[in-house]
């Protein structure tokens, strides 16, 4: 199968939970994969940190957390009240099947209003998060045994193989980025590199605290962050956004290091790696915004993987784009081998 390495990394990572602030199972899984290449630890906020070589090197960042829901109350009738964690999209949650990560993982389903109780003025509208309920199928007593306020909830969804080399899954945002970094390390195996610091950061979806604290504890002064971006689709303009299959989208923005970004694009041309610029007018809405201003300032570049249907259970990506992102990072790291970045 084409891109089997990337596929298997991504499928494994997408199968994990890891809603912001409770990243454990995804972080442990990713840490285990990373430990093949370097010693690994978890930092104070829960980010996975790996270091290879002595002194400041290139920092590679992708966030390990995913959007989801958090239980705010377990009602006496066994239904759950929730709030969103990160930018969960209420429009895709009615009737969604979910996993409640309580004392054990249990199945639940987001309720929907039966047609006879639907109000005319609510037609065509999703409920608010305040009105949202999760049906556990349990009595209040049973539910309270297993679920507590603060427990996280993830939307269910399979890892679907679509036509060609496209796949659909929940949390491709940003397990695709984590997969790209792991694939990059695979490509670099046996090659000498500059020192590397890898960070699978916690809490990106809730504001980037994980990356901010994580980078402070590292030594490098150059960072490459990998996140997802919008891919063109009906309603998402082809002129304005990249498309599936465009390869690595290299960020060009006032807040990103222009020299590194330009070099990445040039390098892609030289090495025949698919890439395109993605231009933004200010901040990027990614970990780069937090990383850039840490310590005495860090030269930061962003590579984005285009996906459709961001923040739904059917995020669609092209495996070739993850492979290209990995290849471009590997080429850049190789080029700077022997340096202390």
């Amino acid at each position: 199968m084409e891109y089997s390495e990337v596929r298997s990394l991504l499928e494994g990572l997408c199968g994990k939970g890891g809603v912001s602030g409770r990243e454990d199972d995804a972080a442990d899984f990713a840490a285990n994969l990373l430990s093949k290449y370097m010693p690994v630890k978890r930092d104070t906020l829960g980010s996975v940190i790996g270091k290879k070589g002595e002194g400041g090197g290139i920092i590679l960042d992708a966030h390990i957390d995913r959007i989801g829901l958090i239980v705010t109350a377990v009602k006496d009738d066994g239904f759950l009240k929730v709030a969103k964690v990160g930018g969960s999209d209420i429009r895709v949650l009615t009737g969604a099947k979910v996993t409640i990560h309580g004392k054990k993982d249990i199945f639940g389903i987001v309720t929907s209003t039966p047609p006879h109780l639907a109000k005319k003025e609510d037609e065509g509208k999703a409920p608010s998060f305040d009105d949202m309920l999760i049906d556990t199928g349990l009595t209040g007593e049973e539910a309270k045994e297993i679920v507590s306020p603060g427990d996280r909830i993830t939307a269910n969804g399979s890892f679907l193989t679509l036509a060609g080399t496209r796949v659909a899954s929940p949390c491709i945002d940003d397990r695709a980025g984590v997969a790209a970094i792991l694939r990059c390390l695979q490509m670099l195996e046996g090659k000498s590199t500059c020192p590397l610091e890898v960070m699978f950061s916690a809490q990106e979806e809730t504001g980037g605290s994980g990356a901010q604290a994580g980078v402070f504890g590292l030594e490098g002064s150059v960072a490459l962050a990998v996140d997802v971006t919008f891919a063109s689709a009906p309603g998402v303009s082809k002129e304005k956004y990249g498309s599936l299959g465009d390869g690595a989208l290299v960020g060009i923005a006032p807040t990103l290091d222009y020299e590194i970004s330009s070099r990445l694009l040039a390098l892609a041309g030289e090495k025949d790696i698919k890439a395109k610029p993605e231009v933004m007018g200010g901040r990027t809405g990614t970990n780069c915004d937090e990383i850039q201003t840490q310590r005495g300032g860090i030269k930061t570049a962003l590579i984005s993987i285009p996906i459709r249907n961001m923040h739904t259970s059917v995020e669609v990506c092209e495996l070739a784009d993850i492979e290209a992102t990995a290849a471009l990072m590997a080429a850049y790291i190789e080029e700077r081998s022997g340096e202390n970045a």
Binding site: G87, R91, V92, L162, A168, F230, P234, V236, N309, M310
Partner: peptide
Amino acid sequence: PGVVGIVPVH
């Protein structure tokens, strides 16, 4: 297999 997509909330 297919999916029903939506313009991202962002």
